[in-house]
Design a protein around this nucleic acid. Sequence first.
DNA 1: CAATCAAACTAACAAGTGTTAGTTAAATAT
DNA 2: ATATTTAACTAACACTTGTTAGTTTGATTG
Lengths: 189, 189
Amino acid sequence: MKQETRKEEIIKTAARLFKEKGYSAVTMRDLAKAMGIKAASLYNHINSKQEILKEIIISLAEEFTRGISIIKSSEKPCIEKLNEIVALHVSIASKNTYGMASLNNDWMHLEEQLPYYLELRTNYENEFRNILKEGIKKNEIIDSDVEVLLFSILSTLRSLYLWIPKKEDLNSEELTSHLSSILINGINK
Amino acid sequence: MKQETRKEEIIKTAARLFKEKGYSAVTMRDLAKAMGIKAASLYNHINSKQEILKEIIISLAEEFTRGISIIKSSEKPCIEKLNEIVALHVSIASKNTYGMASLNNDWMHLEEQLPYYLELRTNYENEFRNILKEGIKKNEIIDSDVEVLLFSILSTLRSLYLWIPKKEDLNSEELTSHLSSILINGINK
DNA sequence: CAATCAAACTAACAAGTGTTAGTTAAATAT
DNA sequence: ATATTTAACTAACACTTGTTAGTTTGATTG
C-alpha cells in the first residue's frame, strides 16, 4: 500500500481549500485547522505557503507536458491525437480536481517558479497549436482561425475540474468519448 | 458626454487589479496606489472592499440574466438562439473583460449577496439547459448528454474574457460567427 | 464674501498574516 | 535501555490588513 507522507496530506488538504477560496484567501491557520493541528506545526513538514502552491501547480503542469509530448510524437491522424488530448485532460482532472483549480486560477501567485510555469504553459499551447495546424494542412479539420479553435477546445478542457465532481456517475471513458464527439463534430444534427 | 463618477473609476480600477491577482490578493492600499491616492481616501467614495466586488459581479450577473430572458422568449429556432447566446457572451465580455474575471473567479467572496448571485447563476444555467433540451426534442441538435453539452459550450463562453484581450484584431461579429460555427458544427471537415 | 461640498490627507486601531524559536511527548531504531 | 526521530505544542515576532476619525484644501454655490 502506498501510504501518504504527512507532507502529501498537507498539500492535498491545501489544494482542497485553495479550490474553495483561492490561494490568497486561505491562511496557514485555516489549513492547520483543516488538518486538526496548529499552524506552526505545519512548518515541521513544509517550508512555506508558497512551497505548497509550487508543489501543486508545477507537478500538474509537468504532467501535462509529459502527456502532450507523448501524443505529439505518435504517427496517428490528427483527429486521434485530439482524442488523446481530451483523454489526457479528463484523466488528470479526474485524479486531482482540487489541484486543477490552483493550476488554472492561482498560478500568478507563484514567485520564483512563475517563469518556469509560463514556459511549460506556452510550450503546451504550442504543441497543441501545432497538432491543430497539422490537422488543417492535412485536411482533417476545418480551416478556421487556429487561435479560435485552440481557445475553444482548451477552454472546455481547462474547465473540466469544475464539472467532473458534479458528474460522478459518468466514468472517464464515457466522458472522454462524449466530449471528443462534441468538440469534433459539434452539436448540430 | 457620459462622464464617470469617481466611484465608477474606483470600481473599474479595482476590476482590473482583481483580474490580475484575484480579489483577496488586492489590498485597499494597492487599489489606492493605482488610483494615485491614499487608501483612506477610497472610503469617501465606497463603503467597503466587499461593496466593490458586489458592484462588479452583480451588475454583470444581472446583465446576463436580462440577456438570456430576451433570447428565451423569442420564437426562433434553437440553433439561432444559441447563436444569440454566443453573441451575448462576446458582447458582455468585450465591454468588460476585467469584471468577467471577478464574476468567474471571485464570486465565492461575496457575502450577503452570495445567495442572490447563486440564484442568478442557477437561473441562467436553467434557461440555457432548457434551450438545449428544446433543441434536442425538436431534432435540431444531437441527442447527447445535455449536461455535457451545456458544460462544453458554457466553459468556452465563460473563458472568453481571457482571450478577447489577446485578439484585439478580431471584431465582435467575426468572433461570434467563428465561435458559433465551431460550437455548432465542430472542427471536423 | 460666506457657506457648502467633494475629495484628498494624516494618524491610528484592532485583528489577522506568515513564520520562527524553543519545548514536549510518543514512537521507532540501536 | 538509550538515542533518535517524528510530529505535535506554546509563545511570540514583525508586518499587513480593512477601516475609522478627524482635518485640510480647493472649487462651486448662495
